[in-house]
Design a binder for these strands. Structure first.
Lengths: 223, 223, 223, 223
DNA sequence: AATGAATGAGCATTCATTCAT
DNA sequence: CATGAATGAATGCTCATTCAT
């Protein structure tokens, strides 16, 4: 009915602003209800755009989610690098920084857990490649940095350590964070085993992983 | 057209047989194409039943998947316990037994990765509880057994170790197993970082986790 | 909201009744407005069914239209055969019978004119084949009958004559029946040429075609 | 990005050049795939214009198609008149000239077959009138010429003969040219009846029509 | 005049689930 | 118990057209 109300994104800069707005809208919707899926209609409405406009910037609904996930990963990398750069940085402090970050962004986990399925389903090869290229670069850069801090690691082991850590985080979230309806039932004796304190258990396991990697390097040096 | 051809499941035993047949049909469909989703229609057809019959044994499509997942987990537990029971058992041999098992059952991973989303989406509280209770029991039993083998672990640490291991496996699979379309692009320099040898990297990381847990116990004993 | 109100079509006979009801609903909609297209929603509503039910009986919207077209063709064949069977039958009386029939069924022409495009667009190969097989049979039968009445025709020329006649009818309708908006403008001198009296012009041209075929046969006999 | 690159069509001549370019683009697209429909986006791209520019010259997508159809009809008239003008012209040679022409322009038929539906759907009254006026004139002119060659025809019968011929051609094409997927199935006994040699059958039928018209005139003269 | 970003109506189709038989 | 016909909500996406720039 009311048409053309939006200021048009003519320049490349405007366009990336609009693209970002769509991704932000997706984030907002997921933030409100991380477990929910959302329709393109509601996404567009939230972004203040028409449905069709979303498809000027993304080829499918899933590519919006992938873009959001990429942005969240970049944010995570930023946080981790920031923590690494601090003077009294330790593995533990880095892990805690990451956990603190995600505590404020609960919409991260479902998206991360669903990433693989998304890539399978409705994401073009181009978009999948772009995503992996961008994340791969960051991962390589941070892996190199890790290898600087832990000089006993071999080339590539830094990135592998990061991937393992990430895998552990995502996997443990999936096991630990039961749906709300189950939380109430948890005190029952036979479910106690699932009463995991996600943050604590993750932190400990991550430290184990990192320490073990360091130790393995040391073993290689002076056998 | 032809109605009531199927022998009716009157006894409790018949019923569980039919239930199992449905679950097997789901497994067969996923085995054929692990990445695919399947409709209730094809599930029923594969099981030789009418669509409606499926709903006599399961409340939703997702509850079928959950039952299949539970069965797969029991199978995994069986394999691991078998490996644990062998005379020359080691963490490494146990891990390898599990990996060997899943290599023959590729349909395990997507289901495991999707489990959390399933529980959120369309699984009744009853079914979710039953699932957790059953798995919790097995987990507790096997955790206890682990604690016997690694006497330095504290009560509960065995199960936690198992959960961590499981989380790492699922999480790493999600990162490592890229969709087929991406595999071809992997040789590119900027994607090499994702060329993960899932089995090798997982085995090493799991051994690190287990060794670290053992070590932590040792540290506690003689400080 | 209100579910299962419909008596279920369990037997094969019930099913063909329901199938026919859908086709009838399509015909009714086209009868109301021959130029219009209609949505599956309105089709289902008109048939007193849910949208999904339509898809139990037809694979696509276009297959409904094809079925309707087939039915209309059978009706036309019935009319023509009836006219042929009358004692004082002549080519002219047969043609007039056909025209009279279609005057009461204006929805025939747009469908017939669109048939080729439909077959290209969204009709499965099965349905297209079945359609052609059924129509081909009737055509062959009636062609043979024509060859009996006009014994100078060679085998196959009867059917060819029918096809030509049909083609002329459809083609001429397309040229002759201008959209309503144009009818008003027709008195203008420069449009007079399109003021075709469809029935008259078609009848004359058809008689020409048939007479010429007969004559050609005669020429062959006594050269 | 790059804006206003196109030289502006300021004069009336420039405008008709641009208009023609759009129509040519449509023809090129249909020539590539006669059965396909094409979007305004691809049309504009092919013409080297922006989508909006198309709407400066045509009111709707269908009006572009109508303009193309008109152009094709003019080309057909040119061909036919050329053939008529040759010294040894005969009905047969004229018909063959037309068929030869269309063999090189297969995009003609689908458009011609769809013309009626187009006029119904999305063509303004102005455009429809202009189309009919232009075609009507040519038709009248050529009808008159036909009446010169066949002096026994009454005024108007020449044009009617042309219209009938055209109708037969379009109608027969619709029956004869089955979609590719069906061609393979045609050898089957029950489909043989549709294995029409379009050119042969059309030529014969057209000659019948013309001969019959001539004969009718003769009959009128000497009864 | 030219552009192309924005629009949003429009729609066929799927499929988990129900329930009359 | 078993069946499978019936349901209808749910939704991603296209594309002709408009109009701000």
């Amino acid at each position: 009915m009311t048409r053309g109300q939006l200021r048009r994104a003519l320049g490349a800069e405007d366009k990336s602003v609009r693209r970002a707005a769509i991704v932000q809208a997706a984030e907002a919707l997921l933030h409100r209800d991380p477990a929910a899926t959302f329709s393109v209609a509601s996404l567009a409405q939230r972004a203040g755009l028409a449905k069709g406009t979303v498809y000027l910037y993304f080829r499918t609904r899933e590519e919006v989610l992938l873009a959001l996930h990429e942005q969240q990963l970049h944010a995570l990398f930023d946080v981790l690098e920031g923590a690494l750069g601090r003077s009294r940085a330790s593995a533990s402090s880095v892990v805690r920084a990451g956990l603190r970050h995600h505590a404020a962004h609960p919409e991260f986990y479902p998206l991360a857990a669903n990433c693989r399925a998304m890539l399978d389903t409705n994401v073009g090869e181009d978009a999948a490649l772009a995503f992996h290229r961008a994340i791969g670069q960051r991962l390589a850069a941070m892996g190199a940095r890790v290898e600087t801090l832990y000089p006993r690691l071999r080339p590539g082991e830094g990135a592998a350590l990061l991937i393992n850590s990430y895998a552990l985080m995502i996997g443990l979230w999936q096991q630990a964070e039961a749906p709300a309806s189950l939380r109430e039932a948890m005190p029952r004796e036979d479910l106690k085993i699932f009463r995991i304190d996600f943050a604590t258990q993750l932190e400990r396991a991550l430290l184990d992983l990192w320490e073990a990697a360091e130790r393995r390097g040391a073993r290689r040096e002076k056998p």
